[in-house]
């Protein structure tokens, strides 16, 4: 964990686009049978950048997350993670290479405790072998103690450390979403993918979440790519936004530019305004 961000500095000071992008997609595309879910998808996300992906339901946003995390393999195009080709990676390798994510329809380990959920995220940070565990050798105790402390530390980002013994499935909806973020962070990523993190949250929870997304980026010095329908969140947190419609990026730019783009207004914001 790196040092804390100085709160006096403006957020944008953290941006460092001079370095290799964390993620770079080139003409990425996937078909499901006859349906082209995503096509000609090109983006770069810089180190410590907070980027947003918006678009109407069914536009292909979650599918892009599934492509980035290798849950789906692309039909076309390529993707680079911190400069290296991800062609031969599977989901596990992608995580180890630095991609962590949350899920639109929460996928927690429901029957496990909050702490255990985070400990699974920290799985690869421990190295003791099976015999060391079964014989309860000092290395087991040492690593378990250290990792447990780290897990509680991570939970404290969302002030959830006191919930550590509760079953994950018993948490209220908002806390489940926050726990998913903590579990993803535990894998020590270089980019965090958040799929509709504010869904189901009330305005005050969303406000808290917005602060925390920025805090996470500033504390861990990682990039964040998020899918969100809450425009207030997107406009205030994201430094760059991509708009997806029918599987294609129709616009890219700063929140301000996106807001004024007639194509976007027609495809997304306009639609929203009507209903």
């Amino acid at each position: 964990m790196a040092q804390r961000h100085d709160p006096r500095l403006p957020i944008l000071a953290e941006r460092d686009l001079g370095k290799t992008p964390v993620i770079e997609c080139k003409k990425l595309g996937i078909d499901f049978g006859g349906l082209t879910a995503v096509d000609d998808f090109n983006i770069t996300v810089g180190q410590t950048e907070i980027a947003g992906l918006i678009g109407p339901n069914g536009a292909g946003k979650t599918t892009i997350f599934n492509l980035l995390t290798k849950v789906y393999l692309p039909t076309r195009g390529s993707m680079y993670l911190n400069g290296s080709d991800t062609r031969d990676m599977n989901t596990i390798a992608a995580n180890r290479a630095g991609i962590a994510r949350t899920f639109q329809n929460i996928r927690l380990f429901k029957e496990l405790t909050v702490l255990e959920n985070v400990l699974v995220g920290l799985h690869n940070k421990m190295s003791y072998k099976l015999p060391e565990a079964v014989l309860r050798l000092p290395s087991y105790w040492r690593e378990e103690r250290k990792t447990r402390e780290k897990a509680l530390d991570l939970l404290s980002i969302f002030d959830m450390q006191d919930l550590h013994g509760a079953k994950a499935g018993s948490l209220p909806y908002g806390s489940q979403r926050r726990l998913e973020i903590v579990r993803a962070l535990a894998t020590d990523p270089i980019i965090l993918l958040l799929d509709e993190p504010a869904a189901g949250m009330n305005p005050s929870e969303t406000g808290e979440l917005m602060k925390n997304i920025i805090k996470i980026r500033d504390t861990f010095h990682i990039a964040v790519l998020l899918i969100e329908h809450d425009m207030h969140l997107v406009m205030n947190v994201c430094e760059v936004v991509g708009v997806l419609n029918y599987g294609r990026l129709i616009a890219k730019g700063s929140p301000k530019e996106i807001q004024d783009d007639p194509l976007v207004i027609e495809a997304y914001l306009g639609k929203k305004g009507e209903t």
Binding site: T69, F109, E111, H123, A133
Partner: peptide, 25 residues
């Protein structure tokens, strides 16, 4: 002892949600 270790938790996480387990590496 096996189950109350990182190995055991990994096994439980697969039962709970395989895709999430993979996403955790």
């Amino acid at each position: 002892m096996f189950m109350k270790s990182r190995h055991g938790r990994a096994i439980l996480s697969i039962r709970e949600n395989e895709i999430a387990a993979e996403s955790c590496g």
